[in-house]
Design a protein around this nucleic acid. Structure first.
Lengths: 228, 228
DNA sequence: AACTGTATTAAACACTTGTTTAATCACAAC
DNA sequence: GTTGTGATTAAACAAGTGTTTAATACAGTT
């Protein structure tokens, strides 16, 4: 029976080497388009090794996604807050955390690409990802929103505010390549760095949140007039 | 030489039938994972027909993307405004237009899936898409933002506001499947219908825009304090 | 009826895919 | 030294890929 390499630094063993070489390739080309032969060539192992260590290609993919999440959490740790931390500061920190960990401006680590693939086209692996990672992440954001609004919002409303904040951030990951076609290349480098973007999204979101601080905006949308 | 079917209703001819059957399959599985044999089987044509009519698989794909855009514009026409239309109403109409045409809540027409693929992983076809479709679309939004803010913003700032609005909308397309894993299935059906979402995004964005109506927030982010 | 150019077809081609097999290697235990 | 066990290998396998070819069918024209 092949070894499982739990709690070991990948890269030392043959199994770990496969994992670390497979990750970037899966991230770049997706599960289907990636060939086991390319992975094995990169890792300098025989084509049979993948089936020997992981059973099949699918289980290897699953393991790379799990590893990607673990590495990303370690690479970009959460900010440490205490009871006195200002909610506005918390929001800015949180936006910065998303941009750093999941958007990764300019650069694009393979771990990020892989996780984005799971958001866009979830496989079985994504359920694991949501429960272990995204849900606690989102709950943290909802807590900050509650503090900033100052009173209890209906859950769907609070969720939508959360999605508005996350959506602004993730735009720069999902639409990055198209955005580069849309605006001046030089502007993109100069004006869309991490701090600049975090500042804008924070400012814009604080404004959006203010709309929900007054109770009058909480009524449901009664007969919105839209054409067609 | 095979016919080109310009200005013809697809579906009548063999060529048109291939195009209409290829679209949904490319949308569902992507270019690479789609096989010409599956397309030909669906369209009840011989495997050689694709090469006969389109040259190769790639050119067929390009034509399906162009067709998808044309159909989507026709299916969801732009609202008609005049000089007296309120900018706030314009913004709501525009948000509704994005949600209808590009996000398509609940349902997911193959044309939308195909266009999203081009945003996420642009091929050569995307350049054509940006110039013919996305750029004028985005310019319209920027015009509305200008009207609402009331004074001239630096272009990168105005663009970022535009991206904040579009980002909130596209979130519900890109992260739709993951969001369904995150929140109650029933809530998603009840609380995230098109009008409800348009209302929230409109309200939230109006708040965000107000932050830029006062000139004081226009200074660059000077030394934002973020951990790590 | 013969010709012409387009449309369609079955079959073959050359190549890549994930997986399996059986042989070989390395190395510790006895 | 022999044995045994896990690691690694080259080779083969079976299925699927996009594309090409050469033959055939079918109109419309002369």
């Amino acid at each position: 029976m092949p070894p499982t390499d739990l709690n070991m630094t990948p890269g030392d063993s043959t199994r770990g080497r496969i994992l670390l070489e497979a990750g970037p390739i899966f991230a770049e080309k997706g599960f289907r388009a990636t060939t086991v032969r390319e992975i094995c060539e990169q890792a300098h192992v025989n084509v049979a090794s993948i089936n020997y260590y992981f059973g099949d290609k699918r289980q290897l993919y699953h393991q790379t996604v799990v590893l990607a999440r673990e590495m990303r959490v370690e690479q970009v740790p959460e900010p440490n807050w205490d009871d006195t931390t200002d909610p506005q500061q918390k929001l800015l920190d949180f936006i910065t955390l998303i941009l750093r960990r999941l958007v990764a401006m300019q650069t694009e680590p393979w771990q990020v690409r892989l996780l984005m693939r799971e958001i866009l086209e979830p496989t079985e692996t994504c359920k694991h990802l949501v429960e272990e990672y995204f849900r606690p992440f989102f709950d943290t954001l909802c807590g900050i929103v509650d503090d900033l609004v100052g009173h209890r919002l209906p859950e769907p409303t609070r969720n939508k505010i959360g999605f508005s904040i996350i959506g602004q951030c993730l735009y720069y990951r999902f639409s990055a390549e198209m955005t580069r076609l849309l605006i001046e290349q030089q502007d993109y480098v100069d004006q869309y760095d991490l701090d600049n973007l975090a500042h804008h999204i924070h400012l814009f979101s604080i404004g959006g949140l203010k709309q929900y601080q007054t109770l009058e905006n909480l009524r449901p949308p009664n007969s919105i007039a839209t054409k067609q």
